[in-house]
Design a protein around this nucleic acid. Structure first.
Length: 800
RNA sequence: GCCGAAAUGGUGGAAUUGGCAGACGCGCUGGACUCAAAAUCCAGUAUGGGAAACCAUGUGUGGGUUCAAGUCCCACUUUCGGCACCA
């Protein structure tokens, strides 16, 4: 029987023996396993965490037994809103809450038996850690990649905080699900768009799942097109538009501006219906992002009176309109509208009775379809007769030659709004001086630590609680010595997690974020496992920071992670996503307490395809317990004597092979199924030689680690199972001497034959054909027409 | 609308990448042990027909390629993720 009491016993032994410590011994072959470090929430460890960590835990444990120097670190991503919101409610300092939660998480993770190297534990809220987060920020600032800009930002009125694009997907706040609004504010931005191409290019060379790559590509959203200047009739000003289809320029029948477009204000005296535009603006601003982008299929807008635009190619005069289907935040906030070949422009033109001019016709003379995107250019002057692709090239050349436009690459991804108006985050190490502008702190003055505060409530207009602490805010300018103020915004939670994997390589270094030698040895991360939900945030942010650090010579590799894997969700027993409100949350503590850590571990590994979601099943948990009991009971009939057991040879070798391969590929469910098959095979005997039990314990030990150690000890095997060498298999002993082959007649299984596993095709064919049962299928005129032999699999006899 | 993943017994899920569909687990049925129960061990369990040998059908739907299709091709349906007036 597997008694859960053995859990603690072996956890203590592993800790005492330092079994899981990574050594900075550069002569050894290394393996760097990484999991996404948790946010230490008050809710504690979730079964989802267990599944996420189990994957790399199993691989790490196997790799150690295979002789690798494994770095499998753990830490806490501990800055963030929940602790702060709790502080606002209760007045308890986030530091105290965070420490308490970290302690609880630590206890929980240890109780599951993860093989983390606790000596390298990091905490993003530790000044010795965030010193280096601030240091990286200063480097970004120095290179012009951190800048302050007045733009429209996503604002959550409920959290009173500005959010990055990545945190406000779908127009709702990531944290509280409130509708976000657009607010014009001066905030810190990181120029991630400068790295869009680099992030995109390197993606090809990485071992990431296809869907992860696809989502990142999608998010970066690169498009190639042109910027074109349209004249305003009788004025010097030009309206710059971005289009991916400059080839359709002859089809432009109007221009459209985003409601917030600044040019409208400049010409307000000339615009006859400016009051109409003002009220339209108000209406547009009232709409939430959701309403504006998702609900309103109906086009709205105002046709500007008093101003006309000119198509720079045809010199035709065309009307100017204001409409909210044009976004200020993308491209130039202005478009050239081609209703014949764009569905949105078409809808607007229909509604406002604007002309529609076809410039592409189908290659074959069929009925022309609306919004034709490829075909032969027509009504297009110099482009007539060309296909769309050539036309695009030709018109861009022409625009560039004439100085009215240029080729342009545009990204969907926007710069990263890098500021939160909160207390519990890394202070931005910048001083705002009236004379000198934004002055960075000197490196030796880092870390800039958080001051003590009593009131954590943020200000009304998105101002950080730090702004109220005069003693901290008021400083002298390091450059000119005059009175100046500190930046009071803090960094977003994504800051600390953007480089933590570097710190793990050298977590106690006071001179640098990590030493060059340690990074050169440990990087890149060999495998990084995490959730799909971080693909467009953390995974992009950290790749960006890492690449930046590479470009300035701080880190030795272009990319941080050689391989990325993802785990599926564990759903509640009802098949729904686990949530407090649904009351279907399973707490890993309860399972560990009731059934033991290895039952939880084995069940989670066995639950299904690692990358797919799977529902929780209490019965399944009990099944895993039953299996572990059955495994342990093998000790009762194991004999401490080496002898051969012919019946077990093939299945043992297959099992070693399959588990080794399956663990590596994270196919834990099939690995365990194979181990079960082997255990069932052992149970066919009344006695079993230790020779056939020892490798079973070893291959089981990455999953049921406590059970493995207990059996190892009980069978008097030397040392510890986790420190033994991974078993190898004999390629020649994978199959039995004789195998049963299915014989198919016209592709239907009819009978079986036993053949020697070394038999040649000819021999197999003869055996199959000589079997008397074949005669049943050769009645009448029927004859054997063809025989297909697949060695080791089957024989198919075609009869007609 | 665009991109991606998926659909297999009562159930969770396997299937060496085109080669005996349903491994392994759960559940269920029967047997052994027991005064009895639990636990354990052994056997059976896709569906229909049949006493059985066996026969037929069967991997969301409809076509196709092939000696052979869950797997490949074409056209759909449904579900789940991601993006979305992106010009």
């Amino acid at each position: 029987m597997y008694d859960k009491k053995i859990d603690k016993k072996w956890q203590d032994v592993w800790e005492k023996e330092k079994c899981f410590r990574a050594e900075d011994d550069f002569s050894k072959k290394k393996f760097y396993s990484l999991i996404e470090f948790p946010y230490p929430s008050g809710a504690g460890l979730h079964v989802g965490h267990v599944r996420a960590f189990m994957g790399m835990d199993i691989i790490s444990k196997m790799k150690r037994m295979q002789g690798y120097n494994v770095l499998f670190p753990i830490g806490f991503d501990a800055f963030g809103l929940p602790a702060e919101n709790y502080a606002i409610k209760t007045g308890v300092h986030p530091r105290i809450v965070t420490d308490k939660n970290i302690e609880n998480f630590t206890k929980q993770m240890k109780s599951v038996g993860f093989s983390f190297d606790w000596d390298r534990c990091v905490d993003t809220t530790d000044p010795n850690y965030y010193k280096w987060t601030q240091w990286i920020f200063l480097k970004l600032f120095e290179k012009g990649l951190a800048y302050k800009d007045k733009t429209y930002v996503n604002y959550c009125p409920s959290c009173r905080v500005i959010l990055a694009n990545e945190e406000s997907q779908g127009g709702v706040c990531d944290r509280c699900d409130s509708q976000i609004t657009q607010m014009e504010k001066e905030v810190w931005m990181l120029k991630i768009t400068d790295y869009a191409d680099k992030l995109l290019e390197e993606l090809e060379n990485l071992d990431f799942p296809e869907r992860v790559k696809a989502e990142q590509e999608n998010w970066i959203g690169r498009s190639e097109g042109a910027e074109i200047d349209f004249k305003i009739s009788g004025k010097e000003d030009r309206i710059k538009v971005y289009t991916t289809r400059p080839d359709t320029i002859y089809g432009v029948t109007y221009m459209a501006l985003a409601p917030e477009h600044k040019l409208l204000d400049k010409y307000q005296n000339e615009i006859e219906n400016f009051d109409e535009i003002v009220s339209y603006r108000k209406e547009a601003a009232k709409k939430s992002e959701l309403e504006r982008t998702q609900l309103s299929k109906d086009k709205t807008g105002v046709i500007v009176k008093g101003i006309e635009c000119v198509n720079p190619i045809t010199n035709e005069k065309i009307p100017l309109v204001v409409t909210d289907y044009v976004m200020l935040g993308y491209g130039t906030g202005a478009i050239m509208a081609v209703p014949a070949h764009d569905s949105r422009d078409f809808e607007f033109a229909k509604k406002f009775d604007l002309p529609i001019k076809q410039v592409i016709k189908p290659i074959e003379e069929e009925a022309s379809l609306p919004f034709l995107l490829d075909g032969t250019m027509c009504n297009s002057g110099m482009l007539d007769g060309l296909n769309a692709k050539d036309a695009k090239k030709k018109i861009i050349d022409y625009l560039e030659k004439e100085g009215i436009g240029n080729k342009k690459v545009q990204y969907h991804m926007k710069d990263w709004a890098f500021a939160r108006q909160r207390y519990w985050g890394e202070p931005v190490p910048i001083i705002k001086c009236e004379h000198c502008g934004l002055v960075p702190l000197k490196e030796e003055d880092l870390p800039l630590t958080l001051p003590e505060v009593e009131n954590f409530i943020p200000g009304e207009d998105g101002e950080s609680p730090l702004a109220k602490i005069d003693s901290w805010v008021n400083v002298t300018c390091p450059k000119c010595g005059n009175a100046a103020r500190r930046e009071t915004d803090t960094m977003p939670q994504w800051a600390g997690s953007s480089w933590y994997f570097l710190r793990y390589t050298d977590p106690h270094n006071n001179e640098a974020l990590a030493s060059r030698e340690n990074m050169e040895y440990w990087l890149p991360v060999d495998q990084y496992n995490g959730g799909m939900e971080h693909v467009t945030r953390h995974l992009i942010y950290s790749r960006f920071w890492h690449r930046f650090l590479y470009d300035i010579g701080v880190v030795p590799t272009k990319e941080p992670y050689a391989k990325r894997s993802t785990q599926g969700l564990i759903l509640g027993p009802d098949g729904n996503k686990m949530s407090k409100s649904k009351g279907n949350v399973v707490n890993p503590d309860d399972i560990v307490r009731q059934y033991g850590a290895d039952t939880l571990r084995t069940y989670i590994a066995f639950i299904g395809d690692y990358t797919q979601s799977a529902p929780w099943s209490e019965k399944g948990v009990q099944g895993s317990k039953k299996f572990l009991d059955r495994v342990m009971r093998i000790c009762d009939f194991t004999e401490n004597a080496d002898y051969e057991m012919e019946e077990l040879v093939a299945v043992l070798n297959q099992t070693i092979k399959k588990t080794t391969e399956d663990y590596t590929q994270m196919k834990f469910n099939t690995a365990i199924a194979q181990i079960m098959t082997y255990v069932n095979a052992i149970y066919k005997f009344e006695k079993v030689s230790i020779k056939y039990v020892k490798p079973l314990i070893q291959i089981l030990s990455p999953v049921a680690s406590h059970v493995a150690e207990e059996m190892w000890e009980r069978l008097n095997l030397p040392g510890l199972a986790c420190k033994s060498s991974w078993p190898t298999y004999d390629e020649t002993k994978l199959i039995k001497d004789t195998v049963e082959l299915a014989v198919l007649v016209n592709s239907v299984v009819r009978y079986k034959i036993n053949v020697s596993s070394s038999a040649e095709e000819k021999e197999i064919e003869e055996l199959a054909l000589n079997n008397p049962k074949l005669q049943d299928y050769l009645k009448g005129e029927k004859k054997v027409r063809k025989v297909i032999v697949v060695k080791g699999r089957m024989v198919n006899i075609v009869v007609k």
